[in-house]
Nucleic acid binder design. Sequence first.
RNA 1: GGCGGGGUAGCCAAGUGGUAAGGCGGGGCUCUGCAAAAGCCUUAUGCGUCGGUUCGAUUCCGACCCUCGCCUCCA
Length: 472
Amino acid sequence: MGLKLLNTLTRSVQDFVPLDPSGKNVGLYCCGPTVYDYAHIGNWRTFVFGDLVRRSLEFHGYNVRHVMNITDVDDKIIRRVKETGGTLSDFTGKFEKAFLEDLAALQCRTPHHTPRATEHIPAIVDLISRLVQRGFAYQAPDGSVYFSIQKYRGAGCCYGQLVHLNFEEMRTGERVANDEYAKESLADFALWKARVPEDGAVFWPSPWGEGRPGWHIECSAMSMQLLGPSFDLHLGGEDLMFPHHEDEIAQSEGTGLQPEGQRFVKYWMHGAHLLVEGRKMSKSLGNFFTLRDLIAKGFSGREIRYLLLTAHYRETFNFTLEGLQGARSSLQRIDECIGKLREIAAGETAGADDALVRQLSKPLEDDLNISGTWGAVFEWIRETNRKLAENSILPAQAASLLASWEKIDGVLGVGLPSAAVVPAEILALVEARQAARKAKDFKQSDGLRDELKAKGWVIEDTPKGARAKRIA
RNA sequence: GGCGGGGUAGCCAAGUGGUAAGGCGGGGCUCUGCAAAAGCCUUAUGCGUCGGUUCGAUUCCGACCCUCGCCUCCA
């Protein structure tokens, strides 16, 4: 069975069929960060979701080309650069670096390309020029260039495919008024923003005068440059459906570069937002966390990743600190079982158990039902523990189970627990305690146990002897 | 006002027209000198409320209540 995904374009779960006639290569574009600050846990949910999509595609044997943009110029960035007094690249470089570090901490596979908007100004200008030539864009009296929804629609193109908006009934609130430049129509959006004094040193030359790219254009320019005018998948948070992705479709398909009958993007996917402690994240509620905040509280990227991956990507997820504690316990349960299998396998290798791999991965095929896969994983863990308890697993079987888990973990990405290396000093204390126990000097042995605990190691007395385990 | 998600045990969360996965937490047990660790077992006659369809509904239909998101900063 193949992968099925919910396509926002059709609002239905569809079989995933790549555009590539050979059925092998897949182009994947994930809307990346705007680097004006550290990404928060809500942002991370979406990026981890993107990683799950990529890993799922790779699990199914596709050769994925994964692109994630770095938006390093926008209103917020310009404002903050001005406040800090540094240069644009110094400012954005810091947050871009942090972003990539955090992405790695969450055990996300690194995208093959992470293009920066500021390094693609020529491609952006070319794209806008083409839209102007084709009559879909115009320069307004304020010098900015806008995309005309009306002209686009007039040419028989459809605007409003991802969300069903009734433009006649749209509320024209403050935000609209604030964004009013000199557009011909309210729905038009900026492709090129004319330079204003507040921009400081942030501007580039263009056929329409000095200025900078609008919000959506960099994604169109960079995705089409790296993946072609028509590619397979485009992902983002649900809030990006409108206007960001809707506008991307318009300006990308407005170029007319797509092959006959092909869309800019075949499958659009959107990840739901999260709540933190049951409430919408906000700084004033004190439930606004960056990844760094959570790591400072003692949680690992791996634990955070696990928690973010416990719920289906299209459901609002309630992220809590209590949940993170639970994630730690759940992961330990997996680690214990894998650790025991490793001891039994003792370096032996074997092929994966295909039936088991299929059983665990099957739910994921249905629009990434990861909860179903976790359910299957834990059922398998329990069954394995039962066999482990009765000593009925042979080394070759253990090796095969490990190989199977490795395959599944290729999608889940929670990693295999690293083989524990117990320092000699700790080992000596464990042995001393064993000797004391043998001599029935329990006062001494309990003292040694306390000493080990103080050093961060807990003794695990098993029928096969004592063993030290680091306290998480 | 328009559009779109949700309401399943103490918490998190799947799922199905035929009688509720899984995780955390709790409880019990095994092991142990005692513990700890680990493991096993257990934990919803019930799926927002009220009606309807049906042999049968948590699942389909209708109404209502509550909640969240988007409607030009947004993951």
